Simulated assay, not measured.
Amino acid sequence: MSENSSSVAQGGSPLRALLEKFYLLCGVLAGVFIVGIAALVMVQVAANAIDRVAQMITGTAIGLMVPSYAEFTGFFLVGASFLALPYAFHHGAHIRVGLVLGRLSAGPTRVMNIVCLLVALGLTSFAGWYAVQLMLDSLEFGDMSSGLVPVPLWVPQAGMALGLIGLAIAVLDDLIVVLAGKTPAFDAIEVDPASSSFER
């Protein structure tokens, strides 16, 4: 967690502390999925190497493999990609094009931030809503993956839904901050990455 976030969590309201923990949890879960992808790849590479050695020695490969390897890495990638969204947004890690904002004074910049955050909130809420509907449909109809190891599709879809809902919460969080006349997290971090005193 950055110094910005940790100071806010310590000195802010209980809701602020809860939001900081939520963003951190999403980031940690995304990291766990990335580690899971690396682990699966390493195990599959090791299995392929053992097979190659066995084939060279005996003339026959053992046939070692991680069942549904490609599907599991795909599911983990979905989890990592979507669950990282709230944490990345809150910590200013998303790419922002500031060609216009960089030339505006404080008042117009605030207005543009509000407009952009409103649009982002609409888009992320829309995507999150339909991600939840997709997950519920998969749960209701018992949809399963088609690999060697069948996995209920609502499980990986839950990570996608949580990530999108979390992103909508992060956008709403910064929208409320900007409407209150304070500095949004992404702006504070861009101005001074080492700062730990921005007001939320």
Rank of each mutant, 00 (worst) to 15 (best):
M160D: 00
T109C: 03
G159K: 02
W129G: 11
H90I: 09
A180Q: 08
E190A: 15
G163M: 01
V191F: 07
G166M: 00
L162K: 02
L64Y: 15
S195V: 13
V35R: 05
S13C: 02
V28N: 10
L29C: 15
V66K: 01
S195I: 07
L101K: 09
T183K: 08
G59E: 11
R96Q: 04
F72L: 11
E199G: 03
L101W: 03
L175T: 07
G128N: 01
A61F: 01
A161T: 00
S2T: 09
F82V: 01
G181Y: 02
V45T: 14
I176C: 13
L29I: 14
M42W: 13
I57F: 09
I95E: 04
N113G: 12
L172G: 12
F141S: 03
F89T: 00
L118T: 13
Q55K: 14
S196Q: 07
S125A: 15
I165K: 03
C116V: 11
I165P: 00
C116W: 06
G59S: 12
A30M: 09
I176T: 13
V171F: 06
L24M: 13
Y130P: 10
H91V: 04
C26Q: 05
L18F: 12
V41D: 05
I37G: 11
R96H: 04
E199C: 07
P108H: 09
A188W: 04
G12E: 05
P67Q: 05
H94S: 06
G27H: 03
D192S: 14
A39N: 14
W129I: 07
L99T: 15
G59P: 05
K182Q: 10
G11A: 06
G122C: 15
P14M: 08
I165L: 08
K182P: 00
E199W: 12
E71W: 03
A39W: 12
L164V: 00
S195F: 07
G147V: 00
V111Y: 02
W129K: 15
V132C: 05
I114R: 00
K21T: 06
L15N: 09
V111S: 05
E20C: 13
P150R: 11
G31I: 01
Q44D: 07
I57C: 05
S125M: 10
G122Q: 15
V28K: 12
L139C: 02
I50K: 12
A120H: 08
F75A: 01
A106W: 05
V35T: 04
I165E: 01
N4H: 13
